[in-house]
Design a protein around this nucleic acid. Structure first.
Length: 399
DNA sequence: TCTGGGGTCCTAGGACCC
DNA sequence: TCTGGGGTCCTAGGACCC
């Protein structure tokens, strides 16, 4: 059955949060970003955009383009709270909400809209209600799958509502520039241009014609792109509160550093922070990764998979030290990072565990790796490996 | 005072096992 | 007696997004 999928995108979200805190900012050129080394613009107001300010721009450059720019260091806790308000508000329309980021989501609106004679009015009600209740502004895209809904919401900002029917794909999407295609970024765009592909229409024609050259270029992804442009993208909503898969921090150093002795204090600090957070959020991790970015902007990552899930600093820190020690290139380093991957939710695993009474059976299953992977795929979460880790922890005190 | 920081997903090669 | 084929796991890197 054809579903009705919506994509909602909050307009200039961080800036809007600041405007709600301090209404005197409304209508002015405002940007969120910091002034220090490597500072860049995170988001900016529509007024600032008129001056050529945009996200990702170095702050000194933004200030050059717009000397009157009001630069604000982000209040990220405030944005997080406001974001939760946004998701709470949406739950009255459907429980089927997929969080795509702090300021955007996909919704299955089939039940909400299916029998409506004037669906636009009901969509407008979502938008107006959000503004009235939270002060937030949004653009809404409506279509038959997530990709098209996302493309739709991008067409009219701010406070736009755009519907893309399958038959409208050529009229609405084909004229757009190739880098407006969600998923095609700044690396792929120039390559496609050398193939003579400048617009989404150019791409669509050659995807549909099963163009040999393009098939070779995209490899396995060719058919994914082809499906997207034919309106056959995924319409599956993956519910809110999905567990994070990784959690990490990185920081650009005040000055480039070279030696282990100079760099290690930063790694220790980052590791403490990351471990603290996974504990606060009740996760266990299985993979430790370090990141080094040298002064030429080349990034190196090194990771180590552990034998057991853990959230202990005493176990994680030596791994970090070891990875750093073994992999330092003899080049000045500008950024260091620590990320914990393969996270599993500790709480949920414990709750789920109580549903089983035969622990030995679970243990036995855990030993058969092949089986665990298959079950993981079917059950999604929590994985039996997690259950096994928790079980061992409870039974033997092993962490 | 060139180029943040937080993520997700995908690919590909080598190790290893049967 | 010189080299199979299938499958998974681990690791590294890259592209992309907000």
């Amino acid at each position: 059955m054809t579903k009705i999928i919506g994509h909602i995108d909050l307009n200039a979200f961080f800036v809007r949060c600041e405007e709600l805190r301090d209404p005197s900012l409304i209508g002015k050129a405002v940007a969120i970003g910091h002034r220090g080394r490597g500072g860049i613009i995170s988001t900016c107001s529509y007024k600032a955009r008129e001056y050529g300010v945009h996200s990702g721009q170095p702050t000194f450059e933004a200030l050059k383009k717009c000397p009157s720019l009001i630069l604000i260091d982000g209040h990220y806790h405030l944005y997080e709270e406001k974001s939760q308000e946004f998701f709470r508000y949406l739950k009255q329309f459907t429980p089927l909400i997929e969080k795509a980021s702090v300021d955007e989501c996909y919704l299955d609106l089939t039940a909400y809209l299916i029998k409506e004679k004037e669906p636009i009015k009901k969509i407008k009600a979502i938008q107006d209600g959000l503004l009235a209740k939270t002060g937030l502004m949004c653009s809404i895209g409506i279509s038959i799958n997530k990709f098209l809904a996302k493309m739709a919401s991008d067409l009219h900002k701010p406070m736009g509502i755009t519907i893309i029917h399958k038959k409208d794909i050529p009229t609405l999407l084909y004229p757009l520039k190739i880098d407006d295609f969600f998923g095609i970024g700044k690396k792929t765009t120039p390559k496609l241009k050398t193939l003579g592909i400048l617009t989404i229409g150019d791409l669509a024609k050659r995807l549909i014609a099963d163009d040999e050259e393009l098939r070779h270029f995209f490899g396995k992804s060719f058919y994914t792109y082809r499906d997207l442009i034919l309106g056959k993208g995924s319409d599956e909503i993956i519910l809110i509160e999905e567990d994070a898969k990784s959690l990490g921090h990185s920081k650009t150093l005040n000055e480039d550093l070279l030696t282990y002795e100079e760099l290690m204090p930063h790694f220790i600090e980052l590791t403490r922070q990351v471990v603290l957070e996974i504990n606060q959020q009740n996760y266990l991790a299985k993979t430790v990764q370090i990141t080094l970015k040298d002064h030429n902007f080349k990034t190196i990552t090194r990771s180590k998979k552990l034998e057991e899930y853990t959230a202990n600093l005493e176990e994680i820190l030596p791994i970090v030290k070891n990875l750093v020690e073994k992999n330092l290139p003899n080049i000045p380093i500008r950024l260091v990072g620590v990320t914990l991957q393969d996270l599993v939710a500790k709480n949920e695993a414990i709750i789920q565990l109580s549903l089983f009474d035969n622990y030995e059976e679970i243990e036995e299953e855990c030993r058969t790796k092949l089986l665990i992977n298959e079950l993981n795929r079917r059950l999604k979460k929590p994985s039996l490996t997690t259950l096994g880790a928790i079980y061992k922890e409870q039974k033997y005190g092993i962490k």
